[in-house]
């Protein structure tokens, strides 16, 4: 009694391994990207990595045309994302300026405006319209907004003197008191 086996032509084992490994890598990549997109904004308690914000002329910081977050170590930073085409941003513009004026001379708090996906002439007109004087500049290449994973504008991030995020405000502030009460949480 003899058994005969028919030779079976198929894809070799190595080719199969390569194909499956490729598909698995692709799925992992898609998963990582989807996960990153659904993460939401950075969360309170996160150490904020250093970033550079170029500044509009007339809005420079001590003569510098750009600032780094690390330049403000030891100070509380209020980072506001806005745009001239954003109607809710207009609701809080005057309140932010008023709050800035309250802390400007103390030297303990810095307000930064990051202009998100905007055109400079309209941005300047907006700053002039609301009499904004704190440091402002364009979020070039949307790098800072991507770093914070913002979902829209306006959004405001409160970073403590050690560079750690401690509060996120999504949407416009309703009053100056709302802004100052968040700042006072971390002021010595």
């Amino acid at each position: 009694m003899t058994e005969t086996t028919t030779p079976k032509r198929g894809v070799s084992l190595w080719v199969q391994i390569v194909i499956w490994a490729f598909i698995a890598a692709l799925l992992v990549l898609v998963g990582v990207i989807l996960n990153k997109r659904q993460q939401g904004t950075v969360q309170p308690g996160d150490q904020i990595p250093d970033f550079t914000l170029p500044l509009f002329s007339g809005y420079e910081y001590e003569g510098q045309s750009e600032v780094k977050l690390s330049d403000f170590r030891g100070k509380l930073v209020v980072l506001n994302f806005w745009a001239s085409w954003c109607k809710p941003c207009e609701q809080e513009a005057a309140e932010l300026e008023e709050a800035w004026k309250m802390y400007e001379d103390s030297g303990k708090v810095v307000f930064l405006g990051a202009d998100y996906v905007d055109t400079e002439p309209e941005a300047r007109a907006y700053l002039k319209k609301f009499g904004i004087t704190y440091y402002n500049g364009p979020d070039m290449g949307t790098r800072i907004s991507q770093l914070f994973r913002i979902r829209g504008v306006p959004e405001t991030y409160f970073i403590d003197p050690d560079g750690v995020l401690y509060y996120v405000k999504v949407g416009p502030f309703l009053s100056v008191d709302e802004i100052t009460s968040i700042i006072e949480q971390k002021l010595p």
Binding site: A83, V117, D118, T119, E122
Partner: peptide, 23 residues
Amino acid sequence: CPVCENTPLDVCPTEACRQWREL
């Protein structure tokens, strides 16, 4: 425009896109 996803700038009706077209 990154504000209105999946809409080409030439047909996007938002204010941001209008500004971009003027630019």
